[in-house]
Simulated assay, not measured.
Amino acid sequence: MRISAIDAYSTYLFHQGTNYSSYRLFGAHLTSWKQKSSVRFCVWAPHARAVSVVGDFNGWDVKATPMDRAKQGIGLWVAYVPGLHEGTTYKYAIKTASGEVILKSDPYGFAAELRPNTASIVKNLHYQWHDVSWQKSRKEYDSYHNPMLIYEVHLGSWKRDASGEVMNYRDIAEPLAQYVKEMHYTHVELMPLCEYPYDGSWGYQATGYFAATSRYGSPEDFMYLVDTLHKNKIGVILDWVPGHFCKDAHGLRHFDGEPLYESGNPVLAENKDWDTMNFDYGRPEVQSFLISSACFWLEQFHLDGLRIDAVANMLYLDYGKKQGEWQANKYGG
Rank of each mutant, 00 (worst) to 15 (best):
A93M: 02
A79P: 01
Y281M: 08
A48G: 05
T31D: 05
K181Y: 05
L149T: 10
V153H: 10
I3N: 09
T207G: 14
R138F: 05
W158C: 01
P147C: 09
R138Q: 11
T118F: 06
A294D: 02
G332H: 01
G208C: 06
L238H: 14
D56G: 14
K139S: 12
L252S: 01
D256A: 07
Y331F: 11
V78N: 08
N168I: 04
H126G: 12
Y331D: 09
V122C: 08
S201P: 10
A93G: 03
F301L: 04
D256E: 05
T11F: 02
F301S: 02
S21V: 13
K159E: 12
H230W: 07
N271W: 05
K330Q: 12
K104R: 04
S218V: 10
A112S: 14
L176M: 08
K159P: 00
R2V: 12
G208P: 04
Y9L: 15
I6Y: 02
W77Q: 00
I308H: 00
F222N: 09
W134G: 03
H154R: 10
H15L: 06
E152V: 09
W326F: 09
D161G: 04
R115K: 14
K123A: 02
W297E: 01
H29W: 04
E258T: 14
E100F: 04
W129V: 00
G235S: 10
E152F: 07
P284M: 07
Y216I: 08
P259R: 04
Y224Q: 11
G282S: 12
M277N: 09
G208M: 06
Q16G: 09
M148I: 12
H126I: 11
M223F: 09
S52Q: 04
Y319H: 06
D309E: 03
L114Q: 09
M167Y: 08
E182P: 09
P46M: 03
G109D: 00
T228P: 09
W44S: 03
Q287M: 09
D280F: 06
E195M: 13
G203R: 08
L114H: 07
Y141I: 15
S157Y: 15
G73H: 03
A310N: 06
K181G: 07
Q327Y: 04
K95P: 02
K71Y: 12
H244G: 07
D161F: 08
K231R: 15
H254S: 14
L30R: 09
P46Y: 04
H130V: 07
E140F: 11
M223Q: 15
Y261M: 09
F110K: 07
A50I: 06
A50G: 13
I74C: 13
G27R: 00
V286C: 07
Y141S: 12
D56R: 10
K181R: 15
G235N: 10
Q72M: 13
V267W: 11
E220N: 10
S98Q: 06
I94P: 01
W326I: 00
A119D: 12
G251V: 01
S293F: 02
M314D: 03
G200Y: 14
R160G: 08
K139E: 13
Y144S: 15
D304H: 03
K104V: 00
H154I: 08
T213N: 12
V311M: 07
S137A: 14
R69N: 05
D221R: 11
S163V: 13
V62T: 14
A312C: 03
L13G: 04
L155Y: 11
K36Q: 15
V54K: 00
L25T: 00
